[in-house]
Design a protein around this nucleic acid. Structure first.
Lengths: 227, 227, 227, 227
DNA sequence: AATGAATGAGCATTCATTCAT
DNA sequence: GATGAATGAATGCTCATTCAT
């Protein structure tokens, strides 16, 4: 992979200009290709997806894909970049650590529900490219790090204020959250035998994390109460 | 994948016959091939691993692999079969639900630590073959189901006895455990930025689950205390 | 190659019509494209040069090339035509055969020095299209034939007048000259390890040919007597 | 190009062992492939020749080619290597410089006549890969350098002994010979309009060079005095 | 039990060419 | 005059698989 993601036709955002010809189905070709690719990459994996398949899904030919992207890797990179830009990984507003954490969970939940595919792409690609060191992989790693760091920071703040308490370090908690979250998503993605609504479980995860952190009643009866 | 049948050349079970030469002959080769394949499948994924690579790792040639296995899929299937047979997915002995759960976690932990690769293979293959329906995939699914069911059963028992209590159904709890567990393993496998010892987190998961289930004292301060 | 016809869009000769804008419009573009193509064809070969490359070099797009030329082959053909028209392959003035030969060499030398690229194009294309039989190839062959014939004629005249003498036939001498000349150019083009000034050698070639032809010592030490 | 030419099945020289099966047409596959490739590379050029074509010519499939060679470039490299090993570029025995030169010419002539294709490959590849810097190109350059150096050395020796004399430096003479020689071969290869027997001309070249070098009248009519 | 040779289907990528605007 | 988008036919290369020995 050597996807630099530059020197590509401008297009991209020109989707609302030039409304006259409705043939290209409204949305710019690049976007349609990205969407198709995203879907297939998540469904079958990067390697198992052929350029031809992606093209056909948009009623185009391989050549068209290569007109817009320099390579398969570049296509993936563009998608990851898109995901990265949309991803809400910052620390949200909130009166205190607890509120911030709740908000964070809420934002994440919303995103996971609205765009599960984006999330799955990150998970799957990070697995498929485990021992690779491409630019794309680094972007994915960065997203994960941001997510994990966000939690760690909030927890740190909470611990200092005495609002949170846990035998686990804040970094560990960050990692724990990310890991468990990914696990839930994966379970759901795999065909979720037991859980029709993976979401449900993700919420359970969040509730349990919140109560596990509560310094005061440290769990009371409230442990793991789903929202 | 199309390796459904089980009738494979001779070898396989002829391990104790023909003992004259104890060298790397016979069954040994099959095992060495499986070991090499397992390692590579986990490291690079099934598709990304070539038969040639597997063979070379054991100082053999492609042909040798095809002497022992009908196809690449068959090789994988054999490995999965092996894992399945070794896997401790039954409900363990124990005086009560709580003890059983502790024992279950303990057994699982031991296995995860001793043979992380086996566990990872399950996870990775279940992802890579998500939308496939091969015999191998079914085996993997079965293992997951067993694991999840085991927990569900113990929890059910505990709930009936009033030892456990949770707003989540026992099936959900089973799925939750499996999912979170997989997530931890994956995070670790991916190069775990934050957690050097994925194991540590897995233990945290177990402790927190136990305390989350505790009906009576609900764990007091004990929530999420690593063993 | 299949560019046989000569009927090409409008442009081409419309160079003096429509003078309003003297900018790089009109004929200019065709010339710029030819120049760029010539340079690239000589540098990388015909096949190895892409239309896109040629267009980019002139800050245009592929489409523009196809507006002016029917095909890549047609572009080459146009260039070859241009070269052919400029090429000084006729027999020059001169009091006698010797003077004519000297003049011929002089004209050729001047051209080779001023437009080495033109010469190289002939050489390289004649090699690259060896077993092709396109119109373009025929043009190139014709140029070579003219050159060779010119010498042969002069030599013939000289032999008749007793000014020249050689064991080689005049046709052979023509071919010999052309071949050696091409060889020198090629050597220079290839990066000429030993000869910084390929020209120098070409001059040596000419001098040696002249003296080899001199009737005086003609049979003498038998210059150029084939074994 | 990244042809290292190592780590390939041994084969190569095992052509006389194992005579039983006459199917592979006696000669080892690798050799047959090299021969076919050589012929095609010379006929159509490296780029214009497809692997498929080469394979078909030997009644094999592309796959077979890739079993024996790591890439198209590697195939070429192997051929060039073969040529290099067969090439008689050393300075031959001889009582004096003149004899050595005659012998050198003789050896070269023999080779050129027996294996014109080998010679042509060198010429054509050196043109096609002009601005490349691959290992293969270096090998070709080396052969050329050897040839040119051999002449230079002999001439140097001759000049010191007073047997040869020329206004051109010995390096220039070496280059001159190589260049002219290549030119003759090329002319012949291109379909040689005027010369059915390119060889004839090459001989003329040699004779003329010899006499041009003769010290006797050396300065005399100043054969080969650059203008 | 294992190897070397070969096959064939598949895949990423390139590139001349077309065409509506 | 010129562009952007798209096509389709190659083309080099990979890899699972087969088979005679």
């Amino acid at each position: 992979m050597k996807a630099e993601a530059n020197a590509r036709p401008p297009v991209r955002l020109a989707s609302m200009v030039n409304k006259r010809r409705a043939e290209p189905s409204q949305q710019a070709t690049v976007d349609r290709l990205c969407d198709a690719a995203l879907e297939l990459f998540v469904k079958k994996g990067y390697r198992a997806t052929t350029i031809d398949e992606i093209a056909r899904r948009v009623r185009l030919t391989k050549g068209a894909v290569y007109y817009h992207f320099r390579s398969k890797a570049d296509l993936l990179d563009t998608i990851v970049e898109r995901v990265r830009n949309e991803y809400p990984c910052g620390i949200p507003e909130g009166d205190g650590p607890r509120e911030k954490l709740v908000n964070f969970f809420h934002t994440q939940a919303k995103w996971a529900i609205e765009r599960p595919t984006n999330l799955l792409l990150m998970i799957l690609m990070s697995v498929e490219f485990k021992d690779t060191k491409s630019a794309t992989k680094l972007k994915i790693d960065a997203i994960y790090a941001d997510m994990s760091d966000a939690i760690a920071k909030i927890v740190d703040e909470g611990k200092e204020l005495g609002v949170f308490s846990s035998p686990l370090s804040s970094r560990q908690l960050g990692a724990f959250y990310v890991a468990a979250h990914d696990g839930m998503m994966l379970e759901w993605y795999r065909g979720g035998r037991k859980l029709q609504k993976g979401v449900e479980l993700v919420q359970a995860l969040r509730t349990s994390m919140l109560s596990a952190l509560s310094a005061a009643d440290a769990g009371g009866k409230s442990t793991a109460t789903p929202t």
